[in-house]
Design a protein around this nucleic acid. Structure first.
Lengths: 106, 106
DNA sequence: CTTTTGAGTAAGTCATGACTTACCGTAAGC
DNA sequence: GCTTACGGTAAGTCATGACTTACTCAAAAG
């Protein structure tokens, strides 16, 4: 029923504007923590914390490269999100057409 | 550039589990405030407040019906969300294929 | 016109979470 | 072996926001 509970970390991760900026930046190219922090109005530790949240939500993955850690988008979660959206869309359309039928029946 | 700023109210609205439950319920059928509150573990005023957030985000609309107010999903915002998702998806794919090309070049 | 039903608003509480600075660990470079 | 670069972690602050109860308002019913 409410199997959207699994999406909880995903939605709450994407809710924060800074975090969504990080995510959108990673969609363009895998990037190191320091490089991300340079272009954002927050400190490097803040970026680290955001990346942890995104990582826990399964939205990004890490790869070690020397002393750097390169973060990248995890496409699978994006796909999950689209599935949820499609379900909402389908449900809404069904509800609309059922309402239309009732109107017809009058 | 960071035109995702417009999505801020949408994502933060969907971040709350209770609010997402309300939204998913509305996707199945337009519903009154009281009917929503009955099936949720929170008070009716809480539902009212959630509906205000969803409404401000453009995710739902209201229709008056006697003393009741019937809330329904606003499909347009759903479509906007999908557009954002598709862009993320496209960006990520491009980034991946570019990375692959660089690997080839080695 | 009063009563009842349905719902938004006010005000206050309490938890969460987005930051900061300070510190600690680890991999490369000399 | 030190030192430097890069990042994660700890601890504390401050704002936001998800609730609650109490109230106010509006529409229909009697």
């Amino acid at each position: 029923m409410t199997y959207s509970k699994a999406f909880d970390p995903v939605f709450s991760a994407l809710a924060d504007p800074t975090r969504r900026a990080v995510f959108e930046r990673l969609a363009l190219a895998p990037t190191s923590v320091g490089a991300l922090a340079e272009t954002l109005p927050v400190s490097r530790p803040a970026v680290s914390q955001h990346l942890k949240v995104l990582s826990d939500a399964g939205l990004v993955s890490v790869r070690q490269d020397g002393t750097r850690r390169i973060y990248a988008i995890e496409a699978e979660r994006l796909h999950d999100l689209r599935t949820w959206l499609d379900r909402m869309w389908g449900d809404a359309l069904t509800a609309f057409s059922e309402a239309a039928e009732k109107d017809q029946a009058k």
